[in-house]
Design a protein around this nucleic acid. Structure first.
Length: 427
RNA sequence: UCCAGCGUAGCUCAGUCGGUAGAGCAGGCGGCUGUUAACCGCCGGGUCCCUGGUUCGAGUCCAGGCGCUGGAGCCA
């Protein structure tokens, strides 16, 4: 029987399998907190009610030992909403000797060294549950809107935004890189299937050491044929609303355990404010910041802008100068790119980046040259402009940043089961 | 790569003015019939990150190194 299903079984005899989460007790009474992955339940052993062997097992069982326990489900005498198990039989099936993670506090580095065990804690359990719901919400959102999932390759032959940020590897005598975006492949797929998305791991070799960066993270990247920037922003807004609504609906318990304030999440409803980069610069100047046109928005600037709004804000039309070669320029203002970022509230920053793609062959060729990229490597990509070029747009959503935001976590490292960071490749 | 902080028991930390090492948790033993990171008593447990320097004497001060953490840049 699963612990999550015990609530409706008061009065019934059940058998559980799981691990000892924590233990308290006295001479004649033991309280075993047992977890099985679905939940945690207090199992009470009274010396007077069980055979000597069972009492002995209860007295000696250590934290995280695997065990089998039988007993009667009954109301918790102290906590009205909970049940407990009155134990009749207990068997330790595999002992756990000196479990490293004690019930007291630990430092992050120690916990990360024991990440494989840390995952067993209530808090990590809650975070991974929220992550799972976010992934499900993303898939459901696209699948019910007629999108086709198209997996992008992990090995790629070339850089799409410069090689310094890519992990390099040997590939049968050639150099290959680990993908930093599936976008270029999604553009090809959009020409085949209209509305597509990829969802997979992405790799960045930048030596970033911040609470927002991982070397390996998961990204969902939709790409839609015949969609413009306005449609792209609407798609991003709809997606975020769907994700937040799903998590609020399905993960109340987990959010409560994480002590997440729900009010800011409940405000995440369309329409999101949309401001241009130029307006964002004005906002910064009003706030006393000496920003000028052409400056990139750093982390502090993003926070300042997003603090002006009570929900995610979309910033669009950045100067094309600093943007990737594939971004289409605004026909009414060539110094601007038809791109957009979505900034999450509460200081969580950029969670989406995207925009409309350059669909003019000559313009794209010129941009590739201007960025000193090898044109031959992009020949297949240019084919998409040679054979029935089409306006199209898309974006990338960072899953870990979204998990951190919805869970209210200060750092992305707990949002992924086994984080890969500048100084962490293990476990 | 740059800036800042930290490094003491298995873990989390304290350690005053430079005088020779301390608490809680974890582990062991004992006590307690309703505990909630249970509690109470006792016990064992140290390469004070490393190297060098100053000093009669360094966990403490100085220099260099290593490691970790946070931030910047870059981005999702």
């Amino acid at each position: 029987m699963e612990i999550s299903k015990l609530a409706g079984l008061v009065g019934e005899r059940v058998r559980l399998t799981g691990w000892l989460y924590n233990k308290r007790g006295s001479k004649k009474l033991a309280f075993l907190e047992v977890r099985d992955g679905t939940g945690v339940v207090q199992c009470t052993v009274a010396q007077a009610d069980v055979p000597d062997a069972t009492w002995q097992a209860a007295a000696e069982v250590t934290q995280e030992s695997a065990l089998e326990v039988e007993g009667e489900v009954r109301a918790h005498p102290r906590r009205a909403s909970e049940v407990e198990l009155g134990v009749t039989s207990l068997r330790v099936t595999a002992p756990s000797v000196e479990y490293p993670i004690s019930p007291k506090e630990h430092g992050t580095d120690f916990l990360m060294d024991h990440r494989h065990l840390w995952l067993r804690s209530r808090r990590q359990h809650a975070i991974l549950g929220v992550r799972h719901s976010i992934v499900r919400a993303i898939r459901d959102f696209f699948d019910t809107r007629g999108f086709t999932l198209v997996d992008a390759p992990i090995f790629t032959p070339n850089a799409c935004e410069g090689t310094s940020t890519l992990f390099e590897t040997e590939y049968h005598g050639d150099t290959a890189y680990l993908t930093q975006s599936g976008q270029l492949y999604m553009e090809a797929a959009a020409a085949a299937l209209g509305k597509v998305y990829c969802f997979g791991p992405t790799f960045r070799a930048e030596k970033s050491k911040t609470r927002r960066h991982l070397a390996e993270f998961w990204m969902v990247e939709p790409e839609v044929a015949f969609l413009d920037l306005d449609g792209d922003m609407q798609l991003a807004e709809d997606l975020l609303c769907a994700i937040v609504a799903r998590v609020l609906d399905a993960r109340r318990t987990e959010l409560a355990l994480l002590e997440r304030d729900l009010a800011p999440l409940e405000r995440v409803q369309g329409p999101f404010p949309r401001i241009s980069y130029r307006q964002a610069i004005d906002v910064l100047r009003e706030a006393g910041h000496d920003a000028k046109f052409g400056d990139d928005l750093g982390a502090d600037e993003e926070t300042l802008v997003s603090q002006r709004f009570d929900r995610p804000v979309i910033v669009h039309r950045y100067p094309s100068e600093a943007k990737a070669f594939y971004m289409k320029r605004d026909p009414t203002a060539p110094e601007l790119a038809l791109c957009m970022d979505v900034l999450a509230p509460e200081g969580y920053g950029e969670i989406i980046g995207g925009g409309q793609r350059e669909d003019d062959l000559a313009a794209l060729e010129a941009r590739i040259d201007a960025h000193h990229l090898p044109r031959a490597a992009f020949d297949w990509y240019l084919d998409l402009r040679r054979y029935g070029s089409f306006p199209h747009a898309g974006f990338g959503l960072g899953v870990e940043r979204t998990v951190a935001w919805l869970c209210g976590l200060p750092h992305v490292r707990e949002t992924i089961p086994f984080p890969r960071m500048l100084n962490r490749l293990a476990p």
